[in-house]
Design a protein around this nucleic acid. Structure first.
Length: 129
DNA sequence: CGCCTGACGAAAC
DNA sequence: GGTTTCGCCAGGC
């Protein structure tokens, strides 16, 4: 997919004065929760949606507290740009990530999502940004 | 206060 | 076209 829009303007509404408050985490979790079942997205996509596309690492790093958040965050639906389950080692059982994905209809082979582009869920697009 | 690390991504080789 | 390096930004030590 291609970068068609620049959510920077919308982000400005969410992030007044470009302040990097911990709200960034909340936003990441918020977007991650919006991922529909049977769909997957990438850290970079979420980052781009938030406006910090250059900091995809921050998104992934933010997921470190995904299990600490009250509403469950489907972190298993978030993979890297390559469609690889790089964060599976961070799950309670390492293999639970692909297990959940498979249960939702996502085919996973060797820690990699099959037809990643087909199951890809663009936050910026689906959220109306 | 400075250096290292990290669930990524894109450019360079 | 696969592998390696650099860049990003925030947190931990």
């Amino acid at each position: 997919m291609t970068v068609r829009k620049k959510p920077a303007e919308k982000i400005k509404t969410i992030r007044p004065s470009g302040k990097r408050e911990e709200n960034f985490f909340a936003l990441v979790f918020e977007v991650a929760r919006q991922i529909p079942k049977g769909r997957v997205t990438s850290y970079g996509a979420i980052a781009a949606c938030l406006g910090t596309k250059s900091s995809a690492r921050m998104v992934g790093w933010a997921m470190n507290g995904c299990h600490l958040v009250k509403p469950k965050v489907p972190a298993h639906r978030v993979v890297n740009r390559n469609g690889m389950l790089t964060g599976k080692h961070h799950f309670t059982p390492p293999g639970m990530m692909e297990k959940l994905l498979k249960k939702e209809g996502i085919k996973v082979k060797n820690d990699q999502v099959i037809d990643f582009d087909k199951h890809f869920w663009n936050p910026a697009e689906e959220l109306g940004l």
